[in-house]
Amino acid sequence: MRLDKFLCESTDFTRSMARSALARGEITVNGEVVKRATYVVQDTDAVAWEGEPLAIIGLRHLMLNKPAGYECTNKTSQHPSVMDLLDVEKRERLHTVGRLDVDTTGLLLITDDGQWTHRVISPRHQTDKVYLATLAEPLPDDAVQRFADGMLLKHEDEAVLPAHLEVVDPTTARVTVQEGKYHQIKRMFGALGNRVVTLHRERIGSVVLDPDLAPGESRYLTDAEVQSLGGMEPGETA
């Protein structure tokens, strides 16, 4: 990697700021001042800016306990962004792995690893997404079967994939789906003549929302959690 690009990746420098710092002799590599933007940084090189060691920010994978009232976006809107809840460097590089509605709470994955995101959300990987829903009205007796059969929702040409519905009590249910169509769960309950009052995502694949995270708090995924969701299949290449 070129030295000027390395500086941009490891600091808040723009390319012009990086070149200015180089020209002023503020950058050292292995203790020696280097002013050439085209210098190729090796893995073993120790790069510093005014004596402060610099390092590339690696790929990041986080879970957030999303509170209600936040949008899954990087852009300013009528609601605050979930990115505002993160205390990490260069958060503008991050994106959400799928989305939750403004009023939906719970497990949200955030990363800057595009290949990992693709593997998590790819329909062929059939990743379970588990939600707890509270409802305005009691569930009908045939609700479990209708979810299992797959439903043709309004404005859709094909039925959604079969979903698992676990009745917790007459107005509370746990739903497991493997896709994420627009407002899908709310629309599925709407097809039963019901309305979702609250919706909370508990799990994606084998990754469960950390019970120690209060709403608005986040943590990095463990290596095992990252691998469980985005590990490559045999024969698959990056």
Rank of each mutant, 00 (worst) to 15 (best):
V130S: 07
T237V: 15
M188L: 05
R174F: 00
K154S: 12
R201F: 00
P67V: 11
R187N: 03
G231R: 00
D141P: 12
L135Y: 06
D210G: 12
I27C: 00
L86W: 00
L165F: 01
D149N: 09
V34K: 10
L22C: 04
G98C: 13
L165M: 00
L229E: 03
D101V: 11
P53R: 10
E26I: 06
A224W: 07
L229Y: 06
L107I: 08
D212I: 10
L100A: 11
D87R: 13
T28F: 10
L132W: 09
M151Y: 06
R60I: 09
E26P: 09
R99I: 03
A48D: 04
T44Y: 09
Y182H: 14
D4E: 11
V33A: 14
L108M: 05
R203F: 08
D149A: 11
D12G: 13
G31R: 03
R187H: 01
Q227D: 15
V208T: 12
P123L: 00
S10N: 11
V82S: 05
V29F: 01
Q184R: 02
M188S: 06
D149W: 07
D4M: 10
V167H: 00
F147R: 01
V120F: 08
G98W: 13
R195L: 12
F189I: 12
L165A: 02
R203D: 11
P170D: 06
E225Q: 12
E179K: 07
E233C: 14
L7Y: 05
H155N: 15
M188C: 03
T14R: 05
R124S: 15
E52L: 14
D113Q: 08
V207E: 01
T38K: 14
L161S: 09
H118A: 14
W49P: 01
V102W: 10
G235S: 09
L229P: 00
P170W: 08
M232A: 14
L3H: 08
V97P: 03
V208D: 13
D128A: 13
L161H: 10
L64M: 03
G205P: 12
L100S: 10
V47L: 02
S218G: 11
T172I: 10
E9Q: 15
P234G: 02
L229T: 07
S10I: 11
T172L: 07
Q42I: 12
A37Q: 03
K66H: 09
T44V: 15
T38Q: 15
Y70W: 12
V207N: 03
A48T: 01
D101W: 13
E52Y: 11
D101H: 12
V175F: 04
